[in-house]
Design a binder for these strands. Structure first.
Lengths: 203, 203
DNA sequence: TGTACATCAGTGAACGCGCGTTCACTGATGTAC
DNA sequence: TGTACATCAGTGAACGCGCGTTCACTGATGTAC
């Protein structure tokens, strides 16, 4: 990787990584094709050998993010073991861990403003990530009497919303809370699960 | 307002409104000092009679947003009447209504990336908005036995996070859910409140 | 093993563009006398 | 009421900048013979 003659070796991925660093540092809008090229020690024009343009590179960053994200959630879910509840809570923690460990990916996915439907490569892998969360939510719901069972897609939407809100409001510099984001999400989801009837009313 | 000679009349506010339109249309990063000037039918240089620069104008948009936001929340809260619970739920609905009716303000406040601490004018009015939510949450918590009472700041953080998450994920074009954002937030907060022990376990 | 040649990844210069910001200015407004 | 003048809001031209993108090119690589 360090040898570098006229040919780079793996410029495509080097550009993705340079973009990640930039996005994590300055936000998805501070990211620039030219600067990414500079980060990979290459001329801006070289980027066009591998990507259709600026947005295409950004979309690839997001795509890789969704893949990592889906894999992490899948791993945390662990086929619903040891229990649907434990698996669900693990996915919640995994969400925040992903946002913390992969800020560049997270921002490209959720803060860059590029829509999954406009980028064909993005839609399937985004759907896959969402599917894991929904599966976890459905697993949970099955322990509820059928007439009081909200749809899995609704439960997962609630949890996703709260997780995303915690990331955006309390993990990014902006608003500071008295509570660490991780605690905030854990208590929030705990209360929510109790509301679903899945935790004893007073644990 | 329509008469327009050499002097504009109220250029300052006209610029704010032009900025709002731009932000609502193209997001907070699509907003440009030059385009805002054009929107107000004025030369870019004229902006500097009223604002220190691009970011200063953006901050003023956010500031006005926080003021409207705080007022709306205050109105919805209605001093905790008719009940702490009803008032709390009303603030939740008001949050979403604000995001829907004032998209430009909302984006300037929460998606533009300008930090309240960097803009001295912003901090107090942002704190004021947050205070309303916290008051509503504290009012709620008082109906709980003291040993099971989470801090008001925590409850308000939970609700704020879920509200913001619903706005970002399901109200902006991006992810589409089977449920309208309003329903999503109402059911989500309902379940959460049940988890707090403030709603009967099976309503 | 050595050489000719096709392939193709990256270069370097150039482009047009819109940006934020500055500056000396000018035209309208309103006040003092 | 009329005029001189200070004030100041907006103009218009100019700036330097970095952007994304294009193009003809060149140098390295690897394959065919």
């Amino acid at each position: 990787m360090t040898k570098r003659g006229y040919h780079h070796g793996n410029l495509r991925q080097a550009l993705v990584e340079a973009a990640l660093t930039l996005i994590a540092e300055k936000g998805p809008q501070g990211f620039t094709l030219s600067e990414a090229a500079k980060g990979a020690e290459v001329t801006p024009a070289a980027v066009y050998r591998h990507f259709a343009g600026r947005d295409d590179l950004l979309a690839e960053v997001a795509r890789q993010g969704y893949e990592i994200f889906a894999a992490l959630m899948e791993f945390a879910f662990n086929d619903g073991k040891p229990s649907a509840l434990a698996a669900f809570e693990a996915t919640g923690r995994a969400y925040l861990a992903f946002a913390r460990k992969y800020p560049g990916h997270y921002m490209a996915m959720f803060e860059s403003g590029l829509s999954p439907q406009a980028w064909p490569d993005l839609a399937p892998v985004a759907a896959q990530a969402r599917a894991v969360l929904e599966r976890a939510a459905r697993g949970l719901s099955q322990h509820l009497p059928e007439d009081k069972r909200p749809p899995g897609s609704m439960v997962s939407a609630h949890v996703w919303a709260m997780s995303h809100g915690v990331v955006e409001l309390y993990m990014r510099g902006g608003a500071t809370s008295a509570f660490p984001p991780e605690d905030l999400l854990e208590t929030g989801i705990g209360i929510y699960l109790r509301g679903l009837g899945l935790l004893p009313p007073d644990r």
